[in-house]
Lab assay of single mutants.
Amino acid sequence: MTFKAIINGKTLKGETTTEAVDAATAEKVFKQYFNDNGLDGEWTYDDATKTFTVTE
């Protein structure tokens, strides 16, 4: 399945996608990506659209 992340950061904005077997796996991938890029913020997840949003 394809999962999307919308990034609303102070220094980084945009979208990225990942292929994962479930939402928990996708969340781990996205959180690692955000940690690697120095992002920290509020997380939400919309199961209907398979979209994570992080707002810094």
Rank of each mutant, 00 (worst) to 15 (best):
A26T: 00
A5R: 00
W43R: 00
G9I: 14
T2R: 05
T44I: 08
L39C: 07
F30I: 02
A26L: 02
K31R: 14
Y45L: 02
L12G: 10
A20R: 02
A48L: 11
E56K: 04
F52E: 00
T49H: 04
F3V: 01
T16E: 05
T18I: 14
N35G: 11
D40G: 10
V21T: 11
V54S: 02
M1T: 14
G41K: 05
K50V: 01
N8Q: 12
L12V: 12
T16S: 08
K28H: 08
E19C: 15
D36C: 10
F52W: 05
F3S: 01
E19M: 12
A23E: 04
A48Y: 09
T44S: 12
M1V: 12
F34W: 07
T2Y: 07
F52A: 00
K50P: 00
W43Y: 06
T11L: 10
T44P: 01
T16M: 15
A48N: 12
Y45A: 00
E27V: 07
Y45T: 00
G9M: 15
T18V: 14
T53G: 02
E56W: 11
V29M: 09
T25L: 05
K28L: 10
T51W: 03
I7T: 05
T18L: 13
Y33K: 05
T2P: 05
T55W: 12
V29S: 05
F30P: 01
N8C: 13
G38P: 03
D22C: 03
E15I: 12
D22G: 03
T53S: 05
D36Q: 13
A5I: 14
G14H: 14
F30D: 01
Q32V: 08
E27I: 12
K28N: 07
E42H: 10
A26F: 00
D36N: 10
G9K: 07
A23L: 05
T53L: 08
T51D: 00
M1N: 09
A5V: 13
F3H: 03
T25K: 04
N8L: 13
G14S: 11
K10R: 11
D47A: 12
D46R: 00
E19V: 15
G38E: 05
K50N: 06
E27N: 03
N35R: 15
F34Y: 09
T44A: 10
T18N: 02
T55D: 04
Y33F: 11
I7C: 12
T53P: 00
K13H: 11
T11F: 13
G14Q: 11
T51G: 01
V29N: 08
K4H: 12
K10V: 14
T2I: 14
A48G: 11
A5T: 04
D47Q: 06
T49P: 00
F52K: 00
A24W: 09
Q32M: 09
G9Q: 06
E27K: 08
E27R: 07
E42P: 05
N8V: 13
G9V: 12
V29Q: 13
K31N: 03
F34R: 02
D40R: 12
T49Y: 03
T51R: 01
E27H: 10
L39D: 03
T17R: 07
V29G: 01
A5Q: 02
T2E: 08
T44C: 09
A48K: 09
A26H: 01
K28A: 13
D22T: 04
I6L: 07
K10A: 12
N8R: 08
L39N: 06
D46S: 04
T44M: 07
L12Q: 12
Y33W: 14
F30A: 00
I7G: 05
F52S: 01
V29P: 01
M1H: 13
K10Q: 12
F34K: 03
G9R: 05
E42W: 09
T49M: 06
F52R: 00
K13L: 09
E19W: 15
E56N: 06
T49V: 04
A23I: 08
G38F: 10
T25N: 06
K10E: 11
T51V: 05
A24Y: 09
Y45F: 05
M1Q: 12
T16F: 15
D40L: 14
K13T: 11
L12I: 12
E27C: 13
N8W: 13
K28S: 09
A24C: 12
Y33D: 02
D40P: 05
T55N: 08
K4P: 03
T49F: 03
T17D: 04
D40T: 13
K31H: 06
M1W: 14
E56A: 09
A26Q: 00
T53D: 02
E15V: 10
E56R: 03
A48M: 11
K50M: 09
L39W: 15
N35I: 13
K50A: 06
Y45R: 00
N8P: 05
G14V: 15
T44G: 05
I7Q: 03
I7E: 02
T51M: 03
G14N: 07
D36S: 08
